[in-house]
């Protein structure tokens, strides 16, 4: 009886591990072969506040926003400024405002907050992120930090691991990162389908990091 349970448990563990190796972009280099095909994908963008929002807005200006069936902009709660800027951007492009959604998630870690207490706030942030990603089921998430965006990406990865959604993650490292990745970038590197850096020395240093010039 015990041996049967042990065998069953280890079989499940092996299957989960195989699933992880299959889903994890870092371990499965052929993920692009069975990429989802959408003519009008749903886009989710993390507006990280401050400099992150600034860089993201400059990148959004280069996108064809009208080619996305739905655009979900996520900001951390209390960051009204980012959402206002998004509204201005959307109103200047030829997009249908009805397909734009604005969402909020609680911050994972406030500036100056201690690490032990940030575990709880991160958990809350993660739970809300899971709910949000499951609700909108975006096809692609574009983000550039900070910690709150890590929660969003982990939520998307968890749901993808469970085969509930098929979301691809594109992370753009901040221009301010010249020689080293940010902590958010470093812990998201294995989970991102595309990882874009803006200085060539970073692309040489980290595997899977791509350099295509300054994107902002």
């Amino acid at each position: 009886m015990v041996t049967t349970i042990l065998i069953a448990a280890s079989a499940i563990l092996v299957l989960l591990l195989l699933r992880l190796l299959f889903v994890l972009p870092a371990s499965n280099r052929f993920g692009f072969l069975y990429r989802p095909k959408h003519s009008n994908p749903k886009l989710m963008v993390m507006m990280g506040s401050g400099g992150h929002t600034g860089e993201m807005l400059r990148m959004l200006k280069t996108l064809k926003l009208q080619s996305y069936a739905k655009r979900v902009y996520v900001s951390s709660s209390g960051d009204v400024d980012s959402l206002e800027k998004v509204k201005v951007l959307e109103s200047t492009t030829k997009t249908d405002i009805k397909t734009m959604v604005l969402e909020n998630i609680p911050r994972a870690r406030k500036v100056g907050q201690s690490y032990p207490s940030s575990v709880i706030t991160s958990a809350v942030s993660f739970a809300v992120a899971v709910k949000l990603v499951h609700k909108h089921k975006p096809h692609v998430i574009v983000c550039n930090g900070p910690a709150t965006c890590v929660m969003l990406c982990y939520a998307a990865f968890l749901l993808r691991f469970m085969a509930l959604i098929d979301t691809r993650i594109i992370y753009v490292e901040s221009l301010a990162r010249v020689n080293r990745l940010s902590l958010s970038g470093l812990i998201l590197l294995p989970f991102c389908d595309r990882f874009l850096v803006q200085w060539p020395q970073l692309a040489e240093k980290y595997p899977r990091a791509e350099y295509h010039g300054i994107l902002v």
């Binding site: 692009f32 990429r35 989802p36 095909k37 959408h38 003519s39 009008n40 994908p41 886009l43 990148m59 280069t62 996108l63 064809k64 080619s67 096809h139 692609v140 574009v142 691809r168 594109i170 753009v172 389908d193 595309r194 874009l196 295509h212 010039g213 300054i214 994107l215």
Partner: peptide, 17 residues
């Protein structure tokens, strides 16, 4: 940078077919 490079990367990742 190449014009519309980020758009192209998104298209490659979630192919617009």
């Amino acid at each position: 940078p190449e014009e519309g490079i980020l758009q192209r990367i998104i298209e490659e990742t979630v192919s617009f077919m």
